[in-house]
Design a protein around this nucleic acid. Structure first.
Lengths: 152, 152
DNA sequence: ATAGTATTGTTGTAAATGCAACAAATTTTT
DNA sequence: AAAAATTTGTTGCATTTACAACAATACTAT
């Protein structure tokens, strides 16, 4: 049986695609002179969706460890886009957070700029195509996740 | 129109999948006590495929910049798995490389161990499913690549 | 009740990564 | 022929990242 080389594997394609997207995001954020980083943007968006989320839950979602999630939040707090407060979850003290008014505006603004900049990209793929691709990837990932010992 | 949040985007799924795969690879390599890193493994595999490849071309393929590609090769050379030599490409001096005998054996050995460890994973997806997913991702990536200014 | 275990967040540190600057050589332009 | 630009690889540095250790608190078990 012929060996499947690294460059021929699905692993490679996904890594490559992820890297291209990350670079693209970085370039956009630089070019558009946004005052948050892509990671901070993701965090803001997630916080807007899960209002009052705690740090660890956020960490799981944005795919960072707790340490780095804390650092991203430090930055967002310093910029005045979120505020943190102590609360309990399952009888445990946790730091929860929510967007400030400025944070909400920043998010909206960033969304708008990105959307404008990306409008050309969206013509080429139908909603349906994207959705199908997404479903396949999720199925694929959910499977390999079973093999993984995740500690966040 | 409803806003698509970060966690609902294809961007997120691909990033997440890439991260899961990277973690999984790291765990496997640790657990199996391999004496190369996942990145070094990718490099070895690519070098075995493109015998005599030069550093920059390798960099493009393994998705690292030239600096880090050089560092990975330093490590592989120190371990005796590759040898580098100066040659020309388009009339320019470049450093090309090829596997040593030990490098070839190391690659074969690593392949074997990984294959054994992954055999359970492959049952769940048919070749066809993987191929279709791969095609979709490639198409998707090729499109967003057009938006990107890549400098390697 | 006391000891052990688990959860959450922070800090420190080492490794990985990207980027800019550089050297050396070659090609292109003027 | 000289100057400018390009290609390739290396070095240094700043940023990102992961991981381990820790503190504080709460839960669980004996």
């Amino acid at each position: 049986m012929k060996k499947i080389h690294y460059t021929e594997s699905i692993h490679y394609e996904i890594e490559k695609t992820a890297r291209v997207m990350k670079l693209l995001a970085a370039q956009f954020f630089t070019k558009l002179n946004l005052n948050i980083t892509p990671d901070e943007y993701s965090a803001l968006d997630v916080i807007s969706y899960y209002n009052g989320i705690c740090q660890r839950d956020l960490a799981k979602i944005i795919l960072k460890d707790r340490a780095n999630t804390g650092r991203i939040l430090n930055s967002l707090e310093k910029k005045g886009f979120i505020k943190r407060f102590v609360d309990t979850k399952n009888n445990r003290l946790v730091r929860k957070m929510q967007l400030t008014k400025e944070g909400g505006e920043e998010l909206k603004n960033t969304d708008l700029k990105l959307k404008k900049h990306l409008s050309s990209a969206q013509k080429f793929f139908s909603h349906e195509e994207i959705e199908n691709l997404q479903k396949s990837i999720i199925k694929f990932r959910e499977h390999i996740e079973k093999l993984l010992e995740l500690n966040i």
